[in-house]
Design a protein around this nucleic acid. Structure first.
Length: 332
DNA sequence: ATAGGTCAAGCGAGG
DNA sequence: CCTCGCTTGACCTAT
């Protein structure tokens, strides 16, 4: 059985200006300082509470929180914010509401969190950033386990995956204890990067943390395993009492191609003819141009299929541009 | 009010 | 060298 979820943005609520991504550029941060950060953060976490409520009301139990709740959060301690008490109380209320209603909340910090970077400063930044994410979860009273996961990628290979993995595991020890207990690692979408197999050998066996299986990434980096094998290997790394978490998305190119084919069919244009003389159909040729620019790894707006859980009980964050709209019609 | 230029951080792929 | 894609476009200024 699969519990479906989505990431960060709720399109329905965004129409009402409910969003958790408010931020500021460096210049504004320098000019206005922590009082303004505090103000923005309170707006973000207040809206996050509304999203959690919406999820409960709409039968969605898996949600990835935005990593942009607190602008520039690596630059200060939360306790320095002028409205720290208010912040703590909103977060605690959100966490309690989530826990009372069987919600699973997680984070997916940015691509800048590279624990294996050869640049010491980059590693320092990654550690602060990850610890901050964990501290937010602490303020929310979320589990100190991968039930409240903080998910990242290894982040770099540098032409030598083995030593990068060693650095990653070594630097892992520098994280705060609660961060270590929540951190999980995800397979990559490039053949040169880290497959589930790589992560199993190089991370799970060494430091014991679980692997998030990303279905779509696996297609680009199988490590010699089938989807079923990779999912089951990843699932085996989770504690027995915690549902393995997965990510699912589909190809934007496939979706674009499908759309072009449908337009072609409706207008009696052979698809081949479009490719040969696109200028005859300006609208379609724009679609074709967009299609050609799209990378293989880009995500679709919606998903057309459901992931196969091969009989396992798992949670699955659907990464589609249409967010909650992409899953709302087939939960349960 | 909206459009357009701009904006912290890392990495790898493709042009 | 540049741009894109990835966790998630949003901020700010000029018009």
């Amino acid at each position: 059985m699969i519990n479906y979820g989505y990431a960060c943005i709720n399109l329905e609520l965004r129409k009402q200006k409910i969003t958790t991504n408010r931020g500021m550029i460096r210049r504004t941060f320098d000019a206005k300082g922590l009082p303004y950060v505090s103000e923005i953060a309170i707006k973000n976490i207040t809206d996050q509470l509304k999203i959690v409520q919406w999820n409960i009301e709409n039968g969605i139990s898996v949600y990835r929180m935005s990593g942009s709740l607190f602008p520039w959060m690596s630059e200060y301690e939360f306790s320095e914010l002028p409205e720290y008490d208010t912040i703590k109380s909103i977060l605690a209320e959100t966490g309690k509401l989530a826990m009372d209603n069987g919600q699973r909340l997680s984070f997916h910090p940015g691509q800048f969190c590279v624990l294996c970077s050869p640049t010491p400063k980059t590693v320092d930044n990654a550690i602060i950033e990850l610890d901050r994410h964990s501290q937010i979860m602490d303020m929310m009273g979320l589990p100190i386990s991968p039930a409240a996961k903080i998910n990242i990628h290894v982040g770099g290979a540098y032409g030598d995956k083995e030593s990068a993995l060693k650095r990653w595991c070594k630097n892992f020890k520098r994280l705060e204890p609660n961060t270590q207990k929540r951190l999980v690692v995800e397979n990559d979408d490039k053949a040169s990067m880290y497959s589930v197999q790589d992560l199993y050998e190089g991370v799970h066996k060494v430091i014991g943390i679980p692997i998030t299986f990303d279905y779509y990434h696996h297609k680009f980096c199988t490590g010699g395993l089938t989807e079923e094998e990779a999912l089951k290997l990843a699932a085996s790394t989770w504690p027995k009492d915690i549902r393995p978490c997965t990510h699912y998305s589909e190809s934007r190119r496939y979706e674009q191609k499908l759309m072009m084919e449908q337009i072609c069919e409706r207008n009696d244009i052979p698809f081949k003819a479009l490719e040969e003389t696109p200028d005859e159909w300006p609208t379609l040729s724009n679609h074709l141009k967009e299609f050609k620019k799209t990378k293989e790894q880009a995500h679709s707006d919606y998903i057309l299929e459901k992931p196969d859980c091969y009989g396992l009980d798992i949670d699955c964050v659907v990464e589609a541009k249409a967010k909650e709209q992409s899953i709302i019609n087939f939960i349960n």
